[in-house]
Design a binder for these strands. Structure first.
Length: 736
DNA sequence: AGCACGCCGACT
DNA sequence: GTCGGCGTGCTC
C-alpha cells in the first residue's frame, strides 16, 4: 500500500515472483521503463535486476519496500515484444522469471555491465597542445611523438592508441600529472560489426517445385508457419535464400536458427556469398565481448541476418521480418537443463506475437509439426525431388542373422566398401557410439566394469587407455587384470575408435578419418578433418551423429550404418521417430552429385516392421505409422506432457517428494490430466544421485498448465523441495 | 542461488 | 572454551 511508481523487478535467482522496489531517488523516468536494468539491494547483496512491470502500488507494507540503488540503462534493453517472450517462457516452462530474463541477456549485461563499452578517450589539453608545438623532440622523443599523434587526430581512444603506439600507457601518468592530456570515459556507440561484405551473387534459377514452395510460403502477410519439407539436396537452402533476400530488401531482419552442429562454415559461406551479407553468428563459442557486440547489432538493427543456435531465439530484433528454423526436428533445439525451452516452439510463439512468417525446414519433420499441418495450423510445403541431376540413395539391409560379423563388420558391408572404394568413391561408416568399446568384461569371472556413481557400464577408451563413464564423466585407468578375480579383461562391442582400428586393418592403403566428440575435442580439429573429407582426401570417414548433419561430401557414394538396433526397441515413445530421422539424415550424405548413393544398414532384426516401412515408404511412411500409433496411445502430439523430475542422494527423498507432488495434483481433481508415477528413472542412479519422475499427460494444454502451476507453487513451499534437486520439463523430448 | 543464523561435535 | 558442520529461512 504505497503511493506512486513501484518497480516490479526480476532478479536472477530461482525465485518465481517479481520483487517490488521504489525507484532510485535520482533516476530519470526514461531509465525506469520495463526492459531497463536497475541495481537493487537484495537480501544482503547487490543484484542487477530487470524491470518487468511498473505499478502504482505494492502489496507489501511500505516498511519492507527498499529503494533501488541506481538505474543502469537509459533506454530499455528489451522492448515490449521481447519482454512478452520472456514472460511467456517463464509461464509456459514453469521457470523462474529471473532465469528467463537471464536467458535473454548476454552474460555481461546480466552482470550489470553497460550495453555499450565504456572507452577511454584521450585528448590534449591546451597546455598539451602548446607543449606539442614546442621543442620536446630531442629530450623526450616518445612523449613528443605521442603528443603529435594526439594533435593530428584531435584525440584517440585507448584501443586506437594500443594499436598505434604500444606502450603509450607508460607515458600516461606523467602527462596527466603535467596536465597535458585529459582522459574522458565515453560510450563507444560506433557500430562495431560490419555486415555487408560484397555484392550478392545470383543463384541458380529455381526449379518448378522450389518456385511453388517459395510462392506458397510468401503467400499472405503476417503470421504464418510453413513447414518446408524437402529431402536432402532438394534445394531447401535455395528457398531460404530467396526468402531471406526478400525480407532483407524490405528492410527487415531475418533470424535463422540451426542445430548446434549446424553452424557449418559451408552454410555460412554460402549465405555470405549469395546475399553479400555476412550473417551475424550467435552461438555458445563466442566470448563475452563478442557476444555482447553481436547482441547489440541485432538489437539496434544493424545486422540484417542473424544465424544462431538455440539461445539465439531470444535475441532482440529491431525490425524482425522472418524466422527460419532449419532442421526443425533436431533435438538440440530443446534445452535439456535449467530453463528447458524449445527454441523451435518459441520461434513459432515469437512469430505469432510479432505477426510475421516462420519457416520450419526439415527433410524429416517432427511428428508434432506434421500433425500441426494436418490440423491446418501450419502450411505444408513439400520439395519432393532432389534438385539437379542427383538421384535418391538406394537403401538396403544386411540381415545379421544370415551374415555374421567380425569386429562389427559383416561380409556384405566389406564387399560394398571395397567396390565403392575401387570405383573412387568415399565411404561413411556411421556408428553412434564413441570410444573403443562400450563394455569391458573379465574373461575369467564375467565381471563387467561399472561406474561407481551411475547404473551404467564404463566405456573403454583405448587412445587414453582409460575407462570412462559417458553419463557422469568419471574416468579411471584401465586395469588389465580383473578387480574381482585377477583374470584378463577384454573389451566387448564396438565403438568408433575400435571401428577405425578394424577398418585400418582391412583398408590399410586408404586414408581413414574419425570424427566424433573425442577426435574433435581440440579446437579446429573438426574443421581440419572435415576439410580433408570434403576435399576427398580421406576415403573412409568413421563417426557418430556428428558426421550426419549438414555436411556435404561431394564424393561420398556409400553410407554404412553399423548398428541401428538400439533405436528399434527404445523404451522412449520417440524411439522410431528418432531412428528414422537419424538414418534418413545420414543417408542424405550419400550420392549428392552424379552418382547414385548407396546406404547399407546392418540389423539383427531384419523382420521388424519398421524396416519394411522405411524401405518401402521412406520417412513419410514411418511418420504416418508412428502418428497412428501415437494417436492410439494418446501420446504427443495428441496430448501434452510435462515431467516432474527429482534427484536426491537418498532414494526415499526423491520418491517422497514426488509422492507429495502427486497428492497435490490429485487433490486438484483435474480429471482430464493423467498422472503417471512416480517411478524411478530407467537409469536410476546417475552421478551418485537417485532419480525418479512423475509424468503429467493431458489433451488440454490449459488445464495441464493450471495443474503444473498449482503443483509448482505448493512444492516451492514444501521444505523437502530444498533438500533435493527437482525440475519441471514441459514438452519433454527425453522421457528418461 | 546466496547468505545469514543457529545449534551440536572434535580441536587449537 | 571456539571452529565449523549443514539444516532452515529469507530475499521487495
Amino acid at each position: 500500500m504505497t503511493e506512486c511508481c513501484i518497480l516490479r523487478v526480476a532478479v536472477n535467482a530461482p525465485l518465481s515472483q517479481l520483487f517490488d522496489y521504489r525507484p532510485p531517488p535520482d533516476a530519470s523516468p526514461d531509465a525506469l521503463r520495463p526492459g531497463c536494468r536497475v541495481s537493487v539491494p537484495f537480501g544482503r547483496r547487490r543484484e542487477c535486476a530487470m524491470i518487468v512491470e511498473l505499478g502504482d502500488s505494492s502489496e507489501l507494507p511500505a516498511t519492507k519496500l527498499k529503494f533501488a540503488h541506481a538505474a543502469l540503462d537509459d533506454e530499455p534493453l528489451l522492448n515490449d515484444a521481447d519482454l512478452w517472450l520472456v514472460r511467456f517462457v517463464s509461464d509456459y516452462y514453469q521457470h523462474p522469471i529471473g532465469e528467463a530474463v537471464a536467458a535473454a541477456l548476454p552474460a555481461l549485461l546480466r552482470q550489470g555491465k553497460p550495453l555499450y563499452p565504456v572507452v577511454e578517450h584521450i585528448s590534449l589539453t591546451n597546455e598539451g597542445a602548446n607543449a606539442a608545438a614546442g621543442e620536446l623532440t630531442t629530450k623526450a622523443p616518445r612523449q613528443a611523438a605521442f603528443l603529435h599523434r594526439l594533435r593530428e587526430r584531435g584525440g584517440l581512444t585507448g584501443a586506437a592508441l594500443d594499436d598505434a603506439m604500444p606502450g603509450w600507457k607508460r607515458l600516461r601518468k606523467n602527462l596527466l600529472a603535467k596536465g597535458w592530456i585529459r582522459i574522458a570515459e565515453m560510450q563507444d556507440t560506433a557500430g562495431d560489426i560490419a555486415c555487408r561484405t560484397a555484392t550478392p551473387q545470383h543463384g541458380p534459377a529455381l526449379n518448378a517445385d522450389q518456385s511453388a514452395a517459395l510462392q506458397a510460403i510468401s503467400n499472405g502477410a503476417g503470421f504464418t508457419v510453413s513447414l518446408l519439407d524437402g529431402v536432402t539436396g532438394s534445394g531447401k537452402t535455395e528457398v531460404y535464400l530467396r526468402l531471406i533476400d526478400d525480407a532483407i530488401r524490405q528492410g527487415r531482419q531475418v533470424l535463422v536458427l540451426v542445430p548446434e552442429i549446424g553452424l557449418t562454415p559451408q552454410f555460412v559461406a554460402r549465405l555470405e556469398l549469395r546475399l553479400g551479407i555476412a550473417p551475424l553468428l550467435m552461438h555458445s563459442g563466442l566470448g563475452d565481448n563478442v557476444r555482447l557486440a553481436a547482441w547489440r547489432a541485432a538489437r539496434d538493427g544493424s545486422a540484417p541476418l542473424i544465424l544462431g543456435t538455440r539461445s539465439a531465439v531470444f535475441v532482440p530484433l529491431r525490425n524482425p521480418g522472418l524466422i527460419i528454423v532449419d532442421e526443425e526436428h533436431d533435438s538440440s533445439f530443446k534445452q535439456q537443463e535449467g530453463l528447458r525451452y524449445s527454441a523451435r516452439d518459441l520461434a513459432v510463439a515469437r512469430g505469432k506475437k510479432l505477426d510475421m512468417p516462420v519457416v520450419l525446414g526439415s527433410a524429416t519433420p517432427s511428428l508434432e509439426s506434421l500433425q500441426r499441418c494436418s490440423e491446418g495450423h501450419y502450411r505444408r510445403v513439400v520439395l519432393p525431388v532432389r534438385a539437379g541431376k542427383a538421384v535418391p540413395p538406394l537403401l538396403r539391409l544386411v540381415d545379421l542373422a544370415a551374415h555374421p560379423v567380425t569386429d562389427g563388420l559383416s561380409a556384405p558391408i566389406l564387399a560394398a566398401m571395397k567396390r565403392n572404394l575401387a570405383d573412387g568413391g568415399q565411404v561413411l561408416v556411421f556408428l553412434n557410439r564413441r570410444g573403443f568399446a562400450p563394455t569391458l568384461i573379465c574373461q575369467g569371472c564375467g565381471a563387467i566394469a561399472e561406474c561407481g556413481r551411475c547404473d551404467a557400464r564404463m566405456t573403454v577408451h583405448a587412445g587414453s587407455n582409460r575407462l570412462q563413464c559417458h553419463h557422469c564423466g568419471a574416468v579411471r585407468a584401465l586395469d588389465p587384470k580383473c578387480g574381482e578375480c585377477g583374470g584378463a579383461v577384454v573389451p566387448l562391442g564396438q565403438g568408433t575408435e575400435r571401428l577405425e582400428e578394424t577398418l585400418n586393418a582391412h583398408f590399410g592403403d586408404c586414408r581413414i578419418v574419425r570424427i566424433d566428440s573425442d577426435s574433435t575435442r581440440m579446437k579446429g580439429s573438426m574443421d581440419k578433418a572435415l576439410a580433408l573429407a570434403t576435399a576427398g582426401e580421406s576415403q573412409i570417414l568413421v563417426g557418430t551423429q556428428m558426421l550426419s548433419k549438414g555436411h556435404h561430401f561431394p564424393n561420398l557414394t556409400l553410407v554404412v550404418v553399423i548398428n541401428a538396433d538400439q533405436g528399434l526397441f527404445s523404451t522412449d515413445f520417440r524411439g522410431t521417430e528418432r531412428l528414422a530421422q537419424s538414418l534418413i539424415q545420414v543417408a542424405g550424405r550419400a550420392g549428392r552429385e552424379q552418382r547414385q548413393g548407396e546406404v547399407i544398414i546392418q540389423t539383427a532384426f531384419a523382420a521388424h516392421p519398421f524396416w519394411a516401412e522405411l524401405l518401402r515408404g521412406g520417412y513419410e511412411r514411418v511418420a504416418r505409422a508412428a502418428l497412428e500409433e501415437r494417436e492410439l496411445c494418446a501420446w504427443p502430439p495428441f496430448s501434452r506432457l510435462a515431467l516432474l523430475r527429482a534427484a536426491a542422494a537418498a532414494k526415499v527423498d526423491a520418491h517422497r517428494f514426488l509422492d507429495s507432488a502427486r497428492r497435490i495434483a490429485v487433490a486438484l481433481h483435474a480429471d482430464e490430466v493423467r498422472i503417471l508415477g512416480p517411478v524411478s528413472a530407467p537409469m536410476e542412479r546417475r552421478a551418485g544421485r537417485y532419480r525418479a519422475q512423475l509424468l503429467f499427460q493431458s489433451r488440454d494444454r490449459q488445464l495441464l498448465h493450471q495443474v503444473l502451476h498449482s503443483v509448482r507453487s505448493k512444492l516451492e513451499r514444501d521444505p523437502l523441495s530444498r533438500r533435493i534437486r527437482w525440475s519441471i520439463d514441459v514438452d519433454p523430448i527425453e522421457l528418461f
